[in-house]
Structure formats: C-alpha cells, structure tokens
Design a protein around this nucleic acid. Sequence first.
DNA 1: CGCTTCTTTCAGAAATTTGTGAAGACAGGG
DNA 2: CCCTGTCTTCACAAATTTCTGAAAGAAGCG
Lengths: 165, 165
Amino acid sequence: MAEPAGADRDPEAVSRFVEQFAAQLVEAGLPRMPARVFAALLSSDTGVLTSAELGERLKISPAAVSGAVRYLAQQHMVSREREPGSRRERYRVHGDQWYEALANRETVIRRWEDGLREGVASLGPGTPAGRRLAETLAFFEFVEKEVEAMMGRWRVHREERFGRG
Amino acid sequence: MAEPAGADRDPEAVSRFVEQFAAQLVEAGLPRMPARVFAALLSSDTGVLTSAELGERLKISPAAVSGAVRYLAQQHMVSREREPGSRRERYRVHGDQWYEALANRETVIRRWEDGLREGVASLGPGTPAGRRLAETLAFFEFVEKEVEAMMGRWRVHREERFGRG
DNA sequence: CGCTTCTTTCAGAAATTTGTGAAGACAGGG
DNA sequence: CCCTGTCTTCACAAATTTCTGAAAGAAGCG
C-alpha cells in the first residue's frame, strides 16, 4: 500500500484534481493557464517544479509556461528560484504565503479605495450617491484592517495545528 | 450652491467615475457590462434605475442591460423589483448587502473546499501534496468562519458611524 | 570563446467572449 | 380579446484573449 515517496501516486488522479481545481480558480477570475500551472504546483509532492516538468504534465508549450509563471509571480502566488549551476528555473508555491496573496489583494483594494475617494469628491460628499460611495469606502477600509488582523490569527492557528511548516 | 436634489449633478463627472470604477471591477474579475451597470447604480442618487435609464446612461442595448443585470442578480449584487402596475423593472443596489455578497462568495469558497477535500482524498492524506492541500483547506475553513465574524463587526461599526441606513 | 541547454519574446492562428439587432414572450390597459 | 410597451432570448458579427511555433536571448560548461 505504501506510498512510493517521491513519485506521484496516481498520475491520472493528480491530473483530474489539477484540472478540476484549476477550473474553480478560473471561475474565480484567474486566467486559465496560470490556474492550471498553479494547481499543478499545488499538487506536486515538493511544491516545486521546473518549467519542463510543468510543460510536460500540462501538455503545454514552453511559451505558455513562461507566460503563466510570469503572471503568477506578479500576483505573488509563486516564486521563481534559480537553481545555481544550472540554467533551469524552478517555480515554487510558498506553502503559507500564496493564500495571503490571494486573500489580500492589497493593491487591488487600494485602487478601489482611491477610485471611491475620487468618486465621493466629484459627486459631492453631501449627495445621496456621494454618501453611498463614502460608506462603501468605509467598508473597504474596515476590511483592509480586519484582514490584516485575521492573517495574524491564522498564523497562530496554523502553527498550533500544523507546526510551523 | 445647493444640490438640485433628484438630478445628478454633473453627468460628465458621474460618467467619468462610472467608467473608471467599472474598470477596476473588471480588473478584479467582473465582466465588463455587469461592472458598468453596477457602477452606474452605485453612483445614482437613489440607488435604483430602470432598464431604460441604464441603457441610456451607458449607451448600451436592452439586450446588454438584460444580460448584465441577470449576472449581477445571480451574484446577489443587485436585486430586481417589479414596479407594480407597470411593465418596467427596477434594479437596486442593496446599500449594505452587496459587499457582503462580494466578501462572502460563500458558494465559491464552498466549491473550493469541496475540490480540495477530494484532492486530499485522492492524493492521499499522508503524502506531502496531500498535506499541502489539507492545509490549504484548513485555511479556507478558517477564513469562512472569520469572515462571518468580521461581517458582524462591520454591521456594528457601520451603525455607529452611519446610523442604520 | 563557442556550444549547448533552457527561457523568453514575438507574430499570428484559433478559440472564446462580448455586444448587437431582430424576433419572441409576457403583462397591463383599452 | 387585442394592442402596446417592456424585457428576454437567439444567432451572428466583432473584438479580445489565449496559445503555439519559431527565433532570439541568457548562462553554464568544455
């Protein structure tokens, strides 16, 4: 029964999961290729794969891997490591950082807030519409603070439950 | 100086805001038409517009309005009301409900969780990959609980600051 | 210093998504 | 019971996005 450590167990099962989970990510707004690459990394044993491995498992061209990885790195969902002494690059899911990136989306929220502030100013803070926007803005500011606190609590919770990975 | 209540002040300013804020929403994953319709509602004085008004302000066809509104209603970001005694339909942003819909995304999170659970099972809970997925799953479960609590706090905070709208 | 291996960039083909016009459906009002 | 006004659905056209193959660009290694 034992698990031949190092090799993925049932490649088909893995693939099924990858595709299915990637589909969810797509539905949530992620572009397809990045979603697939990400899911593949997530379900790999080490959490690290090379460009070639990704291309092979997902049956996509090097170009597609390159594009997807760039996207994911920009979103801070993976990091790229240069294997010293080799031209190979390795991409890694940061075990405990990627979901912070997902959950935060700090930059995005900031831009929303900026947009809303402008809106309040230009529609007039005293108008009904202005007031509605101001309330929305307040909500995002609130969330921003809360999420930060929540992440702190998560780290504690996580450590209790999993030990620090 | 006063604000001619009822009429939007500077239609151009409103439009600028609508388009700019909609663009942010698009970037965050919302389809374009729904984003524009939503922004238009958000920046209207009453928070309620008819299909015709939307089409006129955004320069889009009735078909486009129909599609966008259906999408937004499914996401619980607007609600539709039938003006009794008229065939006109009115669409409303729920002042304080839409961001709950945004923040919750409960259904989405649930599906992610389901996907992850399957993944853990099929990759094997004892494998490194399985453990990674399990941790991710734990994270989402954690977030789900936290968000609920957060929303409670928000309602309190909101009431203090704005009175119950 | 040139060879080899891997990655990135670029232009185009293919597929998907998006919005329109036109026809159909539904509901009130005469 | 038909007419009118409003929303929805459908099929198609247009635009955008997405992925590939090919060529150029780095970086180690002999």
